[in-house]
Amino acid sequence: MKKLLILCVVLLLSGCVSVAKVETGPRAIGERLTVTLDGAWNHVDAPGVGPGQLWTMEGSPVDQLRLYSGIKEGQALHAEQGGQQKSFTFRSNMQPDEIASLFEGMLTRDGSRYKLEKLEPMSFNGQPGFRFDYSLVRKVDNVHLSGVGFAAVSRNELFAVVYMAPRLVFYPRYIARVEHIGKSMSIKP
């Protein structure tokens, strides 16, 4: 954790990272996704974050909320980094377990260990989708994290909100806020 914090400070000092407050209330994410916040968040803009938005309560080395809006066929869930690393790309005919596996692949590109805890159907304002809960042991510092994701596919595009935070303090502290966001997901037809 300390190492990640140092890295974050270095990025901030180098001017590569900007942080903006996201106010309470309904927020549009991209063109078709709207979520409603019951508290303010911090929107982190930094190289390599895309294609989703990255929000955090405590700072991105601690907790991360990633919001994906309108991921298209063949598009990767992560910024392309080149080299030998595998790309995890969305296909519009993916079933929920495959989409959950896609996020698993993305989250474990650094060798972290992932375990699916639960996968269940969920509806987002009438749009069929699903929720998945997971745990993760982060490779870089061996921190145990808990996470949750909400996702749906509409008109061949993927919409998702995925959160993770250290399991002992921060995840229990913010999970209600995250669930509020997940339940509020509204996708324009």
Binding site: L116, L119, P121
Partner: peptide, 9 residues
């Protein structure tokens, strides 16, 4: 199974 709810659906 962790995905039992999904499978049942």
């Amino acid at each position: 199974a962790p995905d039992q709810a999904m499978i049942k659906s």
